[in-house]
């Protein structure tokens, strides 16, 4: 294995760890709002490291552009959905009692 292979493997492993953290968060966090963090932040970070790990290996600029675009699109989708779902959940008063500033 060359040095680049090692770097790629390391980045991919970091990505997988973030994915694991995201899944654990999705299962263990107490309400929708916190679970949204697990999904739209940690998992997108995991995808980011995966893309970085694969970027090290690419041979053509077009492939690299495609990979970066995939991450960018995932980020845009994640950000939009996080906002839409969080504001929708607030509007429907889902589990608002645990939010900061809520009446006990």
């Amino acid at each position: 294995m060359t040095l680049l292979d090692w770097i790629s493997a390391a980045l991919l492993t970091v990505g997988a760890v973030f994915f694991l953290a995201g899944t654990v968060g999705l299962l263990r966090f107490p309400d929708v709002y916190t679970r949204l963090h697990a999904l739209t932040k940690i998992d997108n970070l995991g995808l980011g490291f995966t893309v970085l790990g694969l970027l090290v290996r690419v041979e053509s600029a077009a492939e690299a552009l495609k990979l970066v675009m995939i991450w960018g699109l995932a980020l845009a989708a994640g950000a939009t959905l996080a906002y839409l779902i969080a504001s929708g959940a607030l509007e429907r008063k889902l589990a608002t009692d645990r939010l900061p500033g809520a009446e006990p």
Partner: peptide, 9 residues
């Protein structure tokens, strides 16, 4: 939605 992100990876 998780299926989307992880599926891509």
């Amino acid at each position: 939605l998780l299926f989307g992100t992880v599926g891509v990876a």
